[in-house]
């Protein structure tokens, strides 16, 4: 709290000109708030409003029970941060933030949550029976938050009180960022394309169901012993035959049994 007062108080520690010195901490805080409001421009008000909104949306995201609602609040947080990017003359990145984060990735999140049929507590149909120790995580959270708050608050109240260098009109547009991207950063840009390709292939490989893996192994001519070594069990029945009913398909693969389907008749996975 004293750091806040030091920040907003007049530099030489005196009161306002023509006024009696403030008697206590409360009026000092009031004068600090008044000076803060008097020196705040419209762009700063806009920035503070959306920054506050982004922080509130982020807090709700972290604290909400239902993952779908949390994802929607996350979209709100990302959109507010995109507006803050515009205030920082990063217009191209603001567009990118809305397109990639608030658009594509949130669709992915909501889609996965819907596919998984998660209830409010994150479990499917079974309640959490394991009572595990969580206090190391809470302790780590307290220590890390306290340490980072101490260091960063101490730094930010003393440094970076500047609006930065003078910039031209083209700063942060798609053209200038693109020139940087396809000039000095060209190699990294191509590397990112490789990374995205690897991520897509990895996602497809990891998210395959057991049935698909068995089908592929049988199509590749793997023997029964090979299937057993791969942990896929026996392949006596062809799992890819389309006229099998659901119960018949589930029979040789006990790990596929999810229990009763939900009320909507949703069959998890494939």
């Amino acid at each position: 709290m004293s750091l806040i007062l030091q920040t907003f108080a007049p530099a030489d520690g005196s009161a306002w000109p023509g006024e009696a010195p403030p008697p206590g901490a409360f009026s000092q805080l009031l004068s600090g708030v008044w000076e803060f409001l008097a020196h705040t421009t419209g762009a700063e008000y806009l920035f503070f409003f959306f920054a506050l909104l982004a922080v509130i949306c982020a807090a709700v995201t972290v604290s909400h029970r239902n993952p779908v609602v949390a994802a929607v609040w996350l979209v709100g947080s990302f959109s507010c941060v995109a507006i803050c990017y515009v205030m920082l003359s990063a217009t191209f990145l603001a567009a990118l933030q809305v397109l990639v984060y608030a658009g594509a990735m949130m669709v992915l999140f909501v889609f996965v949550v819907m596919v998984l049929d998660v209830d409010e507590r994150g479990a499917a149909n079974q309640p959490s029976t394991r009572k595990s120790r969580r206090w190391p995580y809470y302790g780590a959270a307290v220590v890390l938050v306290t340490g980072m708050t101490w260091v960063l608050w101490g730094t930010l109240t003393r440094q970076f009180h500047t609006s930065g260098r003078t910039i031209g009109t083209g700063f942060g547009t798609a053209e200038s960022v693109g020139r940087e991207l396809f000039g000095p950063a060209l190699f990294a840009f191509e590397g990112v394309s490789l990374l995205l390709l690897a991520a897509v292939i990895g996602a497809v490989v990891v998210a395959r169901s057991r049935r698909e893996r068995v089908k592929e192994a049988v199509a590749a001519g793997t023997s029964d012993e090979g299937l057993h070594v791969a942990g896929l069990g026996s392949a006596d029945e062809d799992p890819g035959t389309p006229d099998l009913t659901d119960a018949e398909v589930r029979q040789p693969f006990p790990a596929m049994d999810f229990g009763q389907p939900s009320a909507g008749g949703h069959e998890g996975g494939n």
Partner: peptide, 21 residues
Amino acid sequence: AAEAAVGLAIVVSLFRSRASA
């Protein structure tokens, strides 16, 4: 974006075998 894609694929795979998030 890559991390979200792979992470969600792992979540889907885990959910299929454990039915828990």
